[in-house]
């Protein structure tokens, strides 16, 4: 699926001036505004405590913002949102197929009636042969793929990923990053991806929001025009290095005063 160039995409979600203050007075997020457009691959990049996971939880509707509004263009329907957590978060008592079935099952749809969609989602992550396996029989990377298949299966308008590959080894992580991009190319999915890895964010995204802590806030947005599909040639491109450098500098610039304390 082709995606319109940056700046010409239809919006699907608006975050307007979001503040989130926890009881006890911790300002997790201050004045975060974000327009998510169809086909965007947005990375929220920052150190721990910068509110990137809070932002994700707000978008997921797991808690309300203290101030500001989050609006879905045309309202949010069931299955509009897919989520991938840092852990695979599979039900160990259910087979791979039953795990991917969950979003449909909760809407009262039988396994038989959505089997085609499940098979398709599993094929997208290369696990169609493991439909009947139990999670314990799979490796860490494979479990993560099941988790991604579950997030994709409803063809959501937006997929939220909260440091999904942080716990995996470097080789598996790179492979999954490659696969994630080819998935995005096939499905045209819109993704918000939380990470603390500069290289991962530059490799994957066309928009990077660099965030800083205390209070959690967005300090700068980078747009990356490099076309998809991206592969090894992008990892070794001169522009990749330059953006990574600049992103890194921005991150460390925000950290500096604290380091001096």
């Amino acid at each position: 699926m082709s995606v319109a160039p940056l700046g010409q995409r239809a919006p699907i979600l608006h975050m307007r001036e979001i503040d989130k203050t926890f009881t006890g007075g911790v300002v997790a997020l201050r004045r975060m505004s974000l327009e998510v457009n169809e086909g965007d691959f947005i990375s929220l990049l920052g150190p721990s405590g910068c509110g990137k996971s809070t932002a994700l939880r707000l978008i997921a509707g797991l808690m309300p913002p203290t101030l500001g509004r989050i609006e879905w263009e045309g309202g949010q329907g069931a299955g509009d949102l897919g989520v991938v957590f840092q852990e695979p978060t599979l039900m160990p008592w259910a087979t791979v197929e039953q795990n991917v079935w969950l979003p449909f099952r909760l809407r009262g749809q039988s396994l038989a009636s959505v089997r085609e969609k499940i098979v398709e989602a599993l094929a997208l992550v290369g696990l169609e042969k493991f439909a009947k396996s139990y999670p314990r029989e799979l490796s860490g990377g494979m479990k993560m793929r099941v988790s991604i298949a579950r997030a994709l299966v409803t063809r959501p308008r937006l997929i939220l990923m909260d440091e999904p590959f942080a716990a995996l080894d470097e080789i598996t992580r790179q492979k999954l990053n490659d696969d994630l991009l080819s998935l995005k190319a096939k499905t045209g999915a819109t993704v918000i991806f939380v990470t603390h890895s500069v290289f991962e964010s530059v490799f994957l995204s066309d928009r990077i929001l660099v965030m800083a802590a205390r209070p959690g806030r967005v300090i700068r947005e980078f747009q990356i025009d490099a076309p998809y599909p991206r592969g090894m040639e992008w990892r070794t491109a001169k522009e990749y290095g330059e953006i990574a450098r600049e992103t890194s500098d921005t991150l460390h610039g925000a950290l500096a005063p604290e380091a001096a304390e």
């Binding site: 939880r57 997921a60 509707g61 797991l62 069931a78 299955g79 949102l81 989520v83 957590f85 852990e87 978060t89 039900m91 969950l102 979003p103 909760l106 809407r107």
Partner: peptide, 17 residues
Amino acid sequence: DHNLRDLMTIYRANRWQ
């Protein structure tokens, strides 16, 4: 698992489900 609980919320599971 607390993430699975969040997932249930996101997919709008009712109390019984």
